[in-house]
Design a protein around this nucleic acid. Sequence first.
DNA 1: CGGTATTCTTCTGTATACAGTCGTGTGCAG
DNA 2: CTGCACACGACTGTATACAGAAGAATACCG
Lengths: 212, 212
Amino acid sequence: MKEMAALSEVYERLRGEIVDGTFDAGANLVELALAERYGTSRTPIREALRRLQQDGLVERGDRGMRVRSRSPEEILEIYEVRIALEATAASAAATRHSDFDLIRIHKAQSAMDAVSPQDPAAMASANRAVHEAIWTASHNGTVVDLLTRLNNHLTRYPATTLEIPGRWAEALAEHRELVQAIESRDADRAGTLARTHMAKARDLRLQLYREA
Amino acid sequence: MKEMAALSEVYERLRGEIVDGTFDAGANLVELALAERYGTSRTPIREALRRLQQDGLVERGDRGMRVRSRSPEEILEIYEVRIALEATAASAAATRHSDFDLIRIHKAQSAMDAVSPQDPAAMASANRAVHEAIWTASHNGTVVDLLTRLNNHLTRYPATTLEIPGRWAEALAEHRELVQAIESRDADRAGTLARTHMAKARDLRLQLYREA
DNA sequence: CGGTATTCTTCTGTATACAGTCGTGTGCAG
DNA sequence: CTGCACACGACTGTATACAGAAGAATACCG
């Protein structure tokens, strides 16, 4: 195995392991332990931690850094922002999409259609791919960037709303409608559909909290 | 002079000097030079640079870091996002503001009324204070955080739209209307007003480009 | 046996050393 | 005078050394 650029390498791995729950919320991140884990010195670790701090994934405790934990209220706050940004992305995509953007969106959509509704990981990732294709079609790098980061916070909480009975089919239908609006360059409609699509996701998340 | 926590100290100073134009766009940031400038070693400098990189204020060049420059297109992209987020903040503020939030907003507003329309720096900062008071009233930390960062990118470009003849009075009027909507807890109206207020700012920015 | 003071350990923040890279300038040959 | 090669200088990426802070463990005294 070749030694990679430890700089972004460490950042990506650490981010991944925080998002996928390897380190759970509130866990103390000890630099030396991480250095050993990733086979580097403390220096690249510290830089990765600073970047993650800026992402809001990690915060300073009394002693060093720890994985930031998010209250249910904060999760809902994040959804509120995501709703607004997804709507913005969708209507921008309706206005500015290229022909190739549509190809990407359709591809992601068919992939999502083909996923077995029994495989939560595949479902989550296919769903995400569709959204990302739409973001890209917005041709607004800032929107893409912010939505990508928000997702780090939302995917950290395992239970996807897509696993709720009936939600998968519903999401597929909502995507279809949304994509259609984008294709026909109806910006207002695309924005509205994206908004209600994401608002539903937020409500379902709330539902999950209610039941738990 | 007491030696401060160099960690966040250096980050803040460097961010400030990038935003206010001390280092202009595209400038090469040499670690050793910065270390000398701030009287520390390279270590805190590097960590500040990593955080700024994550903020999008700085990017990796072939050789080290340089101040990221933004094309006019990108500036407009950022406005697009800001419009959406300001609308979100305003309608959230209408829904969730506390009594004290209103006090803060009114204070900022009177301060803005009292500013001489001859002093661009004071105008910009008073205007910003009003917006920040509204952000705070949204009680959505994520929105506040994102808007704060977007502002780093927008304030970097000196010419404020507020200096355009007639715009100052207009902005004051728009603020008044917006605050009124927030006070009367009319979320839809607050969102719409914020949206058009910011959209106007974007259009004026575009106007500035057109003339330049 | 309980509480408090003190030492010990651990870990971070900062500085510095070292190696590798990239660009640049200089010297040598044609 | 020009082209190429080589060497030098400047900077980053990575590792490590050192000091100080904060918590934990322990010992001492009531």
